[in-house]
Design a protein around this nucleic acid. Structure first.
Lengths: 125, 125
DNA sequence: TTATCTTATCGTATAGCGACGATATATATG
DNA sequence: CATATATATCGTCGCTATACGATAAGATAA
């Protein structure tokens, strides 16, 4: 039973961590901002690093490792899932989380491209 | 009259946009999270892009270009300044903003390094 | 000095985030 | 079915972010 990442990185986040229906800005900027927002908490960065290191974790593993309560970890996992960066697989009574590498790379290259795009737009280096 | 970026990217943000209870996580993660947070609003991304495109802007230019009020733009500029990404230069009655490219590149490579570090920590590619 | 221009700051309102205890949900096992 | 395990969700609290009008602060020009 595979649970896909809720949102591909090229779409907007839907529930949590979504900007108030701001049609004021480009879709691209909104997506990048969403990605950055998903990465804007040290706990979520630590979760991603842990998932990468161990290849996969259940929620309890993460709770053991991080200085956060179970409910808090679960909330961060939800944010990461909605950002499309991680995947949850149901394995009996527990849920096995792992990084969605495809989406992760997409997010990484999205940010990297924006950075280099910005940098190339200057004349004085 | 040069006003340096308030905080180098390798230090923590001080006033606005700083995480509470920062002693729970690694300094590195906190810095990365701060950087991501500074980039987590489409308006700030748009401001950075605009500054890169025009090389430099006064606040009024940005207000003209973005769908945000002057006070709001000024607040975003403050966040970017505190994140160490932009520099303000006083020129008579106005303040000329430009990207702090050195810090910008540091932020970019910091994120890129984290991404590749994460990606290299997996066995199943 | 006075008027003008530009930007920062203040005050305020609303919404969102972060954290966690408590509880509900879901799955397996006895 | 009852119990144990694992996780999501709920409810709540305090704090932070976003936004903007109004005002203050700074520099310049008349």
């Amino acid at each position: 039973m595979r649970i896909k990442a809720l949102n591909p990185v090229h779409e907007r986040t839907q529930n949590i961590m979504a900007f108030p229906r701001s049609d004021k800005f480009d879709h691209e900027l909104l997506c990048l901002a969403d990605t950055a927002r998903a990465l804007s908490h040290p706990g979520r960065l630590a979760i991603l690093a842990l998932l990468a290191r161990r290849n996969e974790c259940i929620c309890g593993d993460i709770v053991e490792e991080l200085p956060l309560a179970q409910a808090t970890v679960s909330q961060h996992l939800k944010v990461l899932k909605e950002a499309g960066l991680i995947i949850g697989t149901i394995e009996g009574p527990r849920i096995c989380y792992c990084v969605d590498w495809k989406a992760f790379e997409k997010a990484a290259s999205g940010l990297a491209n924006w950075f280099s795009g910005i940098q190339s737009r200057t004349s004085c280096s």
